[in-house]
Computed example of a mutant assay.
Amino acid sequence: MTDRAAARAAKNTLASRFAADPGVAAVGLARQATDYVVRVDLTEADAGARVPADVDGVRVVTHVVGTVHAL
């Protein structure tokens, strides 16, 4: 079981790694069943190839959300 603190640390690692990547719209936490996971929102499906399946034992899931525009 992955706790919130471990997931938050993994999220911070990925957020730093992908801060300048135009294919990554956001990095956050999500719950799946009883575990926390890191969720990476992508602007394009091809960017998913650069995202690891896990970071420090915390599972990473990706979702293609498309381009994000300011309101």
Results as ranks from 00 to 15, higher is better:
V65E: 01
R4V: 13
A9W: 01
R31C: 04
D35P: 10
V40G: 04
V60P: 05
V68S: 07
A9S: 07
Q32K: 13
D35E: 15
E44L: 00
E44C: 04
D54P: 08
A53H: 10
V60F: 05
K11Q: 15
P52I: 11
A47G: 02
A47D: 01
T43G: 03
G28L: 01
D54I: 11
A20Y: 03
R4Y: 13
A5F: 12
R17K: 15
V27D: 08
V27Q: 09
A26G: 10
V65M: 02
Y36M: 07
A47H: 00
T34M: 11
A15G: 12
H63L: 10
L14F: 09
V38K: 01
D41W: 01
G66T: 00
A20C: 05
P52L: 13
A15C: 14
L14M: 14
V27I: 15
D54A: 15
R4Q: 14
Y36D: 09
V24D: 04
A47K: 00
V64W: 02
V58L: 10
A9Q: 06
A7T: 08
P52N: 10
V24K: 03
L29Q: 05
A25L: 05
A25R: 02
D46G: 08
A6K: 15
A30D: 13
T13F: 07
A53F: 05
D56V: 07
A15F: 13
V58W: 06
L42V: 02
V37L: 09
A9I: 09
A26F: 08
V27F: 10
V60T: 11
A45L: 02
A30M: 12
A70L: 15
A10M: 07
L29K: 03
H63S: 11
L42D: 01
M1T: 14
L14V: 12
T43L: 00
A7E: 06
V40L: 06
L14E: 09
V68P: 00
V68Y: 02
R39Y: 02
